[in-house]
Nucleic acid binder design. Structure first.
Lengths: 154, 154
DNA sequence: GGGAGATAATTAACATGTTAAGTGAATGTC
DNA sequence: GACATTCACTTAACATGTTAATTATCTCCC
């Protein structure tokens, strides 16, 4: 069997951790986790957005998003209202306080990203991202693998 | 500011999730999480290993590893003893039952990996992994970013 | 050889990942 | 127009991620 430390999942995990390790201290100093930052970033680029779509954009599962929104709302970094035409749906937007926080974090964040780009190479970075996108698209078409071992159980 | 959905951390996160989504159903059908599988895989390639080194190899933080080892030991998938020359250290090894479980999971796991490789292309996959390794190495040298915003606080 | 500091592992506390179950509202069907 | 179904979101339950604090042991230096 393959040396698992050289497997694709491990390569991706280590690479991502190496990247996030650069950003976490800055986010932490502003009282934000990585996921909270993702949500604020996503909200800052739209006027308002429904919870389900936000989950898709920020790449978070519903339950995680529910908890984080509850926290961000309590900290008054976001605002939430119910959609008029469909009472099931909630619509979220970033608050003035939230925007201010983003403006405070963004410079450091941008500087770190620039440092990474410079060190790794802008061209190489673009190429890497393209390959990652292609990988994602390839696997999306593989769909959910109907695991043969489950057939008799469910 | 950059469209965050096109940021490097998000690209890596989505790619990894796309990969793991292929493996999780199979692991789950055998009662294993991704992390438990990583530990068993790591243990299967050595005779025995100290906990700290296992954490490094399986890329898990100490506290996570502690909890998982407790569980795996209770399920008798691994064995643990104390190092004779240093009572602080624990030495872990896989049990016969653990090996048997690996043998049960491996075929499906290998088949999935082969399918991914075929679909994405073996050459491209190797290239991707090399680029990920280079990225990791680049960032390792950036070391821990002494966040200027923290200097006055700590 | 005894005490200060370093080290290995665990525990604690809180945030998120993951799947299943629950709640309330909309939709289609008869 | 009741009712089963679907849908959006939340809550529940358990596993892991993350940092800090604890505990036990070891090492070094005097």
């Amino acid at each position: 069997m393959r040396e698992f430390s050289r497997s694709l999942p491990m390569s991706l995990l280590r690479a991502r951790e190496a990247v996030m390790r650069q950003f976490r201290p800055s986010l932490r100093s502003h009282g934000l986790t990585e996921q909270q930052w993702r949500i604020l970033r996503a909200l800052s680029s739209v006027d308002e957005i429904e919870v389900t779509e936000l989950a898709h954009v920020a790449f978070l599962l519903g339950p995680s998003l529910s908890r984080i929104l509850r926290d961000l709302e309590a900290r008054q970094l976001i605002e939430r209202r119910t959609a008029a035409n469909d009472l099931r749906r909630a619509v979220v937007s970033i608050s003035a306080k939230g925007l201010k926080l983003i403006e405070a974090v963004a410079p450091t964040s941008e500087a770190i990203y620039a440092a990474i780009t410079k060190r790794y190479g802008a061209r190489r970075l673009a190429e890497l991202q393209e390959m990652l996108g292609t990988l994602e698209a390839s696997l999306f078409e593989m769909a959910s693998p109907e695991d043969a071992e489950l057939e008799s159980d469910e």
